[in-house]
Design a protein around this nucleic acid. Structure first.
Lengths: 145, 145
DNA sequence: TAAAATTATGTTTTCAAAATCTTGTGAATA
DNA sequence: TATTCACAAGATTTTGAAAACATAATTTTA
């Protein structure tokens, strides 16, 4: 569904949303630990996210990543688009280059509804929504060992 | 969603369903051409499918692949399971090793419904259904050049 | 014996992951 | 107050493994 990078990105965004605010930043090491991701790989993903202005970062001592109010309003879809592009919006389940109403693959109509639901799911949910969920402590970003 | 191999497998199954019967087999070259797939790669996939008894094959002159009545009853799900295993049934959108009702990721509940629809889609549709669709000539297995 | 699937092996490409180097920033200190 | 040091993100490169794709040899059978 999503690339590994994208999975990590979503988890990281939710994690930072929950753990940080403007005056309380959080470093890569913690983010990697908290999301069960390889540190260096996560660093690269955080760079992408910050370059695309989905998250704020501060260098130097006491620096780190944080999200402000407007960052929290970003939808999951914005993250997905930043990392994976718009493949989820355009791709055909059977991998046809062109798959449309005029030129449908055999499963096009069946999949159309599903795709609609997927898009609805990632667009209607904002990072802020998940912050609240995680606060309730019934949801997880990694498996406890 | 599905692996490349799995996409090819589904296309090949639909193609053979449409083009062959017990006395009229179809060779790998034709299958590859008809589905826009690399010939040798497709050969390997056809082997898998035949080893798992989702399709029939005959060696030698005038040999090839074909589907009998019971083959046509196979669902898309059977192909997916044969090639990709049950990842589609068990995997978490965010890549958690364990993601369940007891231990849900933040998007678990949202994705649950979507997964249900995906499974319904691949289970309710048999290869035979798509054979009919393709016969109607409004559907495509490859892009015309 | 020729046609076709089957088997085995090899190459290329892609992607996740790791390592390393660079840049910017705050704080201590001489 | 200028200098230096340490910390943390930013950027680039390298490595490893898996997936995708290709070639060649081997059966099987009409």
């Amino acid at each position: 569904m999503f690339s590994k990078s994208c999975e990590y990105a979503i988890k990281a965004m939710i994690f930072v949303a929950q753990k940080s605010d403007e005056s309380n930043r959080i470093g890569i090491k913690e983010i990697a630990k908290g999301t069960d991701a390889p540190e260096h790989f996560m660093a690269k993903i955080m760079q992408d996210l910050s370059r695309r202005r989905l998250i704020h970062s501060v260098k130097g001592p006491n620096g780190g990543f944080y999200m402000d109010k407007s960052d929290l309003k970003n939808s999951i879809a914005n993250i997905v688009k930043a990392i994976d592009g718009d493949v989820i919006y355009t791709d055909c389940v059977l991998g046809l280059k062109v798959c449309s109403e005029k030129n449908p693959c055999p499963v096009h109509n069946e999949y159309k509804e599903i795709k609609k639901n997927i898009i609805k799911m990632i667009e209607k949910n904002s990072i802020g929504d998940f912050k609240d969920k995680l606060d309730s402590a019934r949801y997880f970003l990694k498996n406890n060992k």
